[in-house]
């Protein structure tokens, strides 16, 4: 009996181990593949061409700067839009709303999270693009701003559900303690509950940014994809081309191993590094918090 049990244990442990290690392996393989295909670009394409402001690959112009700044512009604006809405909604659902509204809102947010981004892009083209053109009196509604709004919409459900979970795990004692000290409901939320859920809310924000950074389809449909170097405050209301949209729309046509192919992979590496940085920041913040918690428990 005992040896049989042991075999089962060993088996399950090793299966779990394999699963765990395989994810590391996959990430590693993806990185190796990206590096193998993308790094030659640094050798084959003159750096002066790469760090230029003109992207027109079919004529050998591989200036990636407008793409990088386009991505940053859209992602940062989307985050600025999604942050207050997402956290506000999370606070509303978790702290303020009466139970019946909570029970309606939560599934709605989940449905919003499940809408494919192509569908949102379609709505974007048909509704949001014309609306912004008329409302803001722009030459065209296909702008970075439209993309940012749409990305914000895509990132909000992620932020809401993770932030709401974080707020829910705050012990009710905190709220009661805040209230019992004569703080108002809002003072308790801002002064006690939100700070207590800080780590989780930060994770929510990082995941939201990651979602916005990686989104392709919706952005490709509404930002106009013009590789213009953003300059000045007005750039948000002009068309931009993001890194993801560039890879998605051009990867299909390129000949394997060509310069264009290598540069697209280089863009992939840059995206990988960007999301890596975001993840490192997120985990650095949460481990810092965890260390503090461990000190208290000991």
């Amino acid at each position: 009996m005992a040896p049989k049990k042991q075999i089962g244990n060993v088996l399950i442990t090793s299966i779990i181990k394999v699963c765990g290690y395989s994810s590391i392996l996959f990430v590693g393989l993806i990185l190796v593949f990206l590096l193998k295909e993308g790094l030659p670009a640094l050798k084959d394409v003159p750096l002066i061409t790469l760090f230029n402001i003109r992207w027109y690959p079919i004529e050998g112009l591989f200036g990636i700067l407008p793409l990088i700044f386009g991505t940053l512009l859209v992602t940062i604006s989307a985050t600025l839009i999604a942050l207050p809405f997402g956290i506000g909604t999370a606070i509303f659902i978790s702290e303020v709303a009466p139970r019946w509204i909570k029970e309606i809102l939560k599934p709605i947010v989940e449905i919003l999270a499940g809408i494919p981004s192509v569908v949102l892009g379609f709505i974007g083209i048909l509704v949001i693009v014309p609306f912004f053109r008329k409302f803001l009196d722009l030459p065209t509604g296909l702008t970075a701003f439209t993309g940012a709004v749409l990305l914000g919409l895509i990132a909000i459900p992620t932020i809401v559900s993770v932030a709401e979970d974080a707020l829910n795990t705050v012990p009710p004692g905190y709220r009661q303690a805040g209230l019992a000290l004569g703080a108002t409901r809002w003072q308790t939320i801002w002064g006690v509950t939100v700070p207590a859920a800080k780590t989780g809310i930060l994770t929510a924000v990082m995941l939201g940014i990651g979602r916005a950074l990686g989104e392709t389809m919706a952005v490709m449909m509404v930002t106009g994809n013009a590789p213009v170097m953003p300059s000045g405050l007005n750039a948000i209301f002009e068309p931009v081309r993001t890194m993801t949209a560039t890879i998605a729309s051009e990867m299909g046509e390129v000949a394997t191993g060509s310069q264009h192919y290598q540069v697209l992979f280089l863009i992939g590496i840059l995206l990988f590094l960007l999301s890596l940085v975001i993840n490192i920041i997120a985990s650095a913040v949460s481990t810092k918090q965890r260390k503090r918690a461990e000190r208290i428990l000991s």
Partner: peptide, 9 residues
């Protein structure tokens, strides 16, 4: 093409 030409998919 001028850089601000919109490239639609």
């Amino acid at each position: 093409f001028s850089a601000n030409t919109l490239l639609l998919p």
